[in-house]
Design a binder for these strands. Structure first.
Lengths: 193, 193
DNA sequence: GTCTATAGGTGGATAGAC
DNA sequence: GTCTATCCACCTATAGAC
């Protein structure tokens, strides 16, 4: 028996805001636009989140926590090879890239980094550090198990992976070449042979 | 005998605007701020560039043309090896990254791509296509001359190089790791052995 | 929890004096 | 070419009724 659940206004505001940032960035979006897309009025948005900064911080916190859970789950499932774990990591990049207009939430915010309120800068910084160290962990595991063969340090290679994936989404959208992220992932995987 | 030349207001506006975009992006900067940094008033800026869109377009056109000249010069100097040509290409990325607060002009604009006026979107798109095809050319030359050894297609590898360099600048600034761009370049160069 | 009304500020852009 | 003054649209945010 599936209980019908209405998505709460609170969550719909978060969804709409995240979508807008991934599409257009931080500075160019406004309460009025969010309100319009949610289907309420501007002061109702502010009732749930007292400031733009607080709203966007909540979006990034939720985003970080989504990935934190997903990445922990991947790391802990010992039946997965290191390559399978990496393939799972690539999926959201491929998915968001295929839409053609969106990039990673934190990639979008990082593009305007110096224009962001400090509390948001901090969250974005943590996102990249989390992903950097998760990638380092998977690459190290694959190297130790002789599954991967590379001469770089795992830390430098993780930097290459993270930077390339983030950059590929940005360049793909701007250049209009919809194969960009796929091509980059192929190039990254060839570093592991 | 060096003739003293005052930098014209016109060019100082372009310089200040470019600097601001590389630091903070497109949407969050304003005529007032540009005027303040140039040392004139807002309507004086608008006297030189009739709209924000026209001003930023002029900045991107100048930026593209700077790189267009530099890259042509590198390609045409036949005394340079393909690796030396690549090393020249890396220099501006290393330089801008070392400042800690700036990224590529077009990388910054691409992060807000969907928020940009169409005429600016077009310029940014051309920047990435120019750089993609220049990299493709150098990589092809190095492969044909047996200087480089890689199994990817030159096109896919060029995508990896461009995406990784752009992404590395963004992630470096946001994560606060000042070695990021260097680490990524090391990883890229190892693809050529 | 949602609304109307509004405050106070800043945005891009214009008119017109010097 | 630079300025003061001004316009109007839009921004974040608040007060207070329902």
């Amino acid at each position: 028996m599936s209980k019908e659940m209405k998505i709460k206004t609170f969550d719909r505001i978060l969804d709409v805001t995240q979508d807008l940032i991934q599409t257009r960035g931080y500075s160019s979006i406004s309460f009025s636009e969010i309100a319009l897309l949610v289907g309420i009025k501007k002061p109702s948005v502010i009732h749930h989140f007292p400031s733009k900064s607080a709203l966007v911080k909540a979006v990034v916190v939720r985003y970080r926590s989504f990935f934190s859970n997903a990445l922990n789950q991947i790391s802990e499932s010992k039946d997965k090879t290191a390559l399978q774990a990496l393939e799972f990591y690539f999926i959201p990049y491929i998915d968001v890239g295929s839409l053609g207009q969106k990039i990673c939430l934190c990639g979008a915010l990082a593009g305007e980094f110096t224009a962001l309120p400090q509390e948001i800068q901090n969250e974005v910084r943590l996102f990249f550090r989390d992903h950097q160290s998760w990638l380092e962990g998977i690459l190290t595991r694959g190297k130790n198990s002789k599954e991967f063969h590379f001469d770089d340090s795992p830390s430098k290679l993780a930097a290459l992976f993270l930077g390339a994936l983030q950059g590929a989404l940005v360049v793909q959208r701007a250049s209009g070449n919809l194969n960009y992220i796929q091509d980059v992932i192929i190039g990254l995987k060839m570093k592991l042979l």
